[in-house]
Structures are given as structure tokens and as C-alpha cells.
């Protein structure tokens, strides 16, 4: 028996490196589960973007999990700071949606802009962008790593391609997420307020 046990131990040790190759946290896990023992949050709905496990770095340098946005409805878009053609309109569309809300509603929502330019849009550049466009609270202008940018864009159905000159060709989409990160509505209307989208946003805040 002892010999068998020793053999099993040996095999377990030999097999260990292949197990260690597994990622530390499965994407479906709550990233904060380890930090707070007291009441576990309800499991995320199957369609929630907060299952991506993506990490953001805000323009003020704060690092946060995408899932930390849970709790308030979110309007999210993807852009890049050096974009001169459509992104100004995209930013304006975000500001227009915010302006359509009354102050109480404004305090209950987040407006999130995630850069597609993982390489160059560092917090300093995003801070400059936020300042020049007067994007205070409830805006969050954020950078993410290249793999997380791909995942967030994929989950939002935002197609994009980096061009040889470093600019991006990308779809301009505003997406409304509910309090759990599930997409409820999206719009590609930039030139004027999308009334249906704003109505849905207000209904979600009620």
C-alpha cells in the first residue's frame, strides 16, 4: 500500500505543471469573491459583460475591474483620443444623452468611454482628453489592455481595425447596460439625440 501511495504522490507531482498552466481565475468568477466574505453578491446574469473579467485603468490612474461598475446603469462606448473624424460626434452623443437626464437621474448613471488604442491612450492622454471635452462625473474615460479591449469590443459587437497610420476604423456605438451589465439597447445615431435610446435609459433609471 505504501508503495502505491508513494507512486501516486510522485505522479501527482509530475502532473502538477500542466495543472498550474490553468488561468488563475475563470472568467465567470466574481473577481471580488476572495476579498469580501460577507454576503456574496447575486450571480451575474448569463448575458452580463461583467463576466469578461476585464480590467480598466481610469484617466485619473485608478485601476478597477469592469465588474466594479455593477450597481448602476451604464452607457458605454469605445473610441480613441486622437480620433478627429467621428469620435467628437460620439463624445457629443454621450454628452447629449447625459444632458437629456434630470440631475437626480444623472447621479444614478455612469457614462463609460473605453479606448480602442490600448497602446497609446494611457491615463495621462485620456485625462487630457477628458479635460478638453469637459467630461467630469459621471464620465469614466478608461484604458484597457489589448486583450481586454478585444473582449469588450467583441461583447459589445463593435467592429474595428487599426490602420497603418495608427488610427482606427471603428463602429460608433452607444450601448446601455443594466445594473448587472446586461446590454439593453444600442444606438449608432450620432447626429441627433436618439429618442428611443434615451427613453430606454430613463426607464432603466426609474
Amino acid at each position: 500500500m505504501k508503495a502505491v501511495a508513494a507512486l501516486l504522490t510522485g505522479l501527482a507531482v509530475l502532473a502538477a505543471p500542466s495543472r498550474a498552466a490553468a488561468p488563475a481565475a475563470p472568467p465567470a468568477a466574481d473577481p471580488h469573491a476572495a476579498h469580501h466574505a460577507a454576503p456574496a453578491p447575486a450571480p451575474l446574469p448569463g448575458g452580463s459583460l461583467y463576466q469578461l473579467g476585464a480590467r480598466l485603468e481610469a484617466s485619473d490612474g485608478t485601476r478597477l475591474e469592469l465588474a466594479a461598475l455593477r450597481g448602476r446603469p451604464v452607457v458605454v462606448t469605445m473610441f480613441y483620443s486622437t480620433c478627429t473624424s467621428v469620435c467628437p460626434m460620439l463624445t457629443l452623443a454621450m454628452q447629449r444623452a447625459l444632458a437629456a437626464l434630470d440631475p437626480g437621474e444623472q447621479a444614478a448613471v455612469r457614462f463609460v468611454m473605453v479606448s480602442l488604442d490600448a497602446e497609446r491612450d494611457d491615463p495621462a492622454r485620456l485625462a487630457e482628453f477628458a479635460q478638453s471635452h469637459h467630461l467630469g462625473a459621471p464620465f469614466l474615460v478608461a484604458h484597457a489592455g489589448a486583450a481586454d479591449v478585444r473582449a469588450i469590443a467583441a461583447a459589445l459587437g463593435i467592429r474595428y481595425r487599426q490602420l497603418p497610420d495608427g488610427s482606427f476604423s471603428h463602429a460608433s456605438v452607444l450601448t446601455l447596460l443594466d445594473r448587472d451589465g446586461v446590454p439593453l439597447a444600442r444606438t449608432q445615431v450620432l447626429a441627433a439625440a436618439d429618442e428611443a435610446f434615451i427613453a430606454k435609459l430613463r426607464a432603466t433609471l426609474r
Binding site: C83, S85, V86, M89, L90, R150, A153, A154, I158, R159, Y160, R161, Q162, L163, S167, F168, S169, H170, A171, S172, Q188, L190
Partner: peptide
Amino acid sequence: VEDFGGLMVSGDSRNQGDPDKLQ
């Protein structure tokens, strides 16, 4: 492939955001 979503996106950045052209 990792970047499957960007393959047929126009190489002209002036088209970005025009949903009809892009799609």
C-alpha cells in the same frame, strides 16, 4: 482568429461611424 471582427472594416477611417458604409 483573434481579430475576426475587423477584417472587412474599411481601410478609410473617414468612413468610421457611418453605419451604412461600415456594415
